[in-house]
Amino acid sequence: MPGKLFPIGGPVAEEDIVDREDFITSLVTRLSEGQSVMLYGPRRIGKTSLAHEVLRQLKVKGFYIASVDLFRLSSKRALAVALINACLENRTGIRKTIDAWKDRTKTIAGTAKLAIKLQDLELDLGLSQGEQSDEALLDYALNLPGVLAKRDKKPVVILFDEFQDACRVAGTGIYKKMRSYFQNQEDVAYLFLGSKEGMMKTLFADKKEAFYRFATILPIPSIPETAWAEYIAKKFRTRGITSTPEAIKEITRKTGGHPQDTMVVCSELYYALLEAGQNTISLEFVRLGYDRALLTLAPIYDELLDDLNLSFTGRQVLKRIATGTSIYSIENANPNEIKRTIDHLLAKTVIEKKGRGSYTFVEPMFRDYVLREFF
């Protein structure tokens, strides 16, 4: 049975990363040379997919790689275990090395092989009895990338996804602790991602923060319309579906080329065609696919609106930006509250500034959803 034509809901495969070859090559080169990088960009634009492809290419080049998603973690100990497991997988080939180390009842041969692979890393740490403190385990974890690089003579690249969540997971002092270890490690580079762009920029660009100037800050470039058009038309052709340049252009016009939104619209368009028994994309089917996509994205947009926690005035500001009308002419609204709302929306990467007093939505489909919800 054929799989999903357009990938949605998670990191995508190499063949579905559209027009990022040059940027990926640049990231691989920088990290290969030991330069740490922080990537920023609007929410849901494929940062994780990019990062995983970079790690894949580095692994092919002989690097040790490790990936830790801080969003999925809830404690200092969980962070330590996740980082240790991710690092040791390069030696053991086991995703959860610590669990395997603690469970020594499997087979004598298996235990012996694992012990040989880890004997020089002083891994025992009292793990089976839970004797090691969270702080000591975290110290071991943060030091481990440098130890592996030195002992195995392998360059190491570590990915931290949702890096702004480190303080939630391990407390406000975690960034100073991390920096104290990372800055002294040789042949280790770090790739930092985060969905809260404002927080990430502060962490790496504010002189008061521990990670100030630790990593090169790079924006993720947008995908040209021509690249999207070529990719979309090619994917549909693999299923015997024809299209016109006008129909494909309408897809990218409606989505603004936002990676995940474009994939969702194309996916819904594909299923609409299948259900109707059609193999030609028309403007009517594009509109149908778009409307269906908005319905599937509604829970995500509702969650975003809840997260924004806007006041009545704030919602009026959001609506006026969506309609392109004057922001500061809201009746009985405090100009300071309007300014705070705009700053809040900019920090959340919901809007971006186009000119003096002019703003636009980063995600055109969210703008359309706001218009449908507020009218």
Rank of each mutant, 00 (worst) to 15 (best):
Y181F: 15
M199D: 13
G3F: 12
L159N: 05
A149Y: 01
E275K: 14
A215R: 10
A51I: 00
N279F: 04
L191N: 07
D103F: 11
S75M: 07
Q183C: 09
V264N: 01
P224Y: 02
S222Y: 11
E15Y: 04
T48A: 02
Y140N: 01
C87M: 12
Y359T: 05
N336W: 12
G93I: 09
A247Y: 02
L148E: 03
A229T: 12
M199E: 15
C87K: 00
F160D: 05
L318C: 02
D99V: 11
E225V: 14
Y369C: 14
G62N: 03
Q164G: 08
V362E: 01
Q119G: 02
Y64Q: 04
F163W: 12
E268Y: 06
V264E: 01
I241C: 02
G9E: 03
T92A: 00
D302F: 12
Q119I: 14
G41M: 01
G240M: 14
R43N: 04
A115G: 10
T242L: 14
G171D: 11
V286L: 05
T296W: 00
M365L: 14
A66K: 00
E33K: 14
A115L: 01
I116T: 13
P335W: 04
R239F: 13
V264G: 01
F23E: 10
E246L: 07
L283I: 13
R44Q: 12
S267N: 07
L288H: 03
I98K: 07
D302N: 14
S222D: 14
L144C: 07
T325W: 09
G171Y: 04
V169D: 06
L123G: 12
L304T: 13
D165S: 05
N309Q: 11
E337D: 13
L304G: 01
Y181M: 04
T242W: 10
L138K: 05
F214E: 09
R72G: 06
E352F: 09
L310F: 07
Q57V: 04
F160H: 00
Y212P: 10
K354Y: 03
D120V: 13
E275W: 15
A229W: 09
K249A: 03
Q132S: 07
L88E: 09
P221G: 12
V147T: 13
R104V: 04
Y64C: 06
E250P: 08
A227E: 09
A13E: 07
E352H: 15
S128A: 15
G314D: 03
T349S: 15
E230F: 06
F312A: 12
T360D: 04
K113I: 10
L88P: 11
R340Q: 08
A298H: 06
Y290H: 15
E209M: 14
R213Y: 14
S311C: 10
D343M: 12
R320A: 09
Y64W: 02
A210H: 08
A82H: 04
F23M: 03
D307G: 07
D120W: 01
T29A: 09
A51W: 06
C167T: 10
M365P: 10
L371A: 06
P299C: 11
G357S: 06
G126E: 07
V264S: 08
S180I: 05
L297K: 11
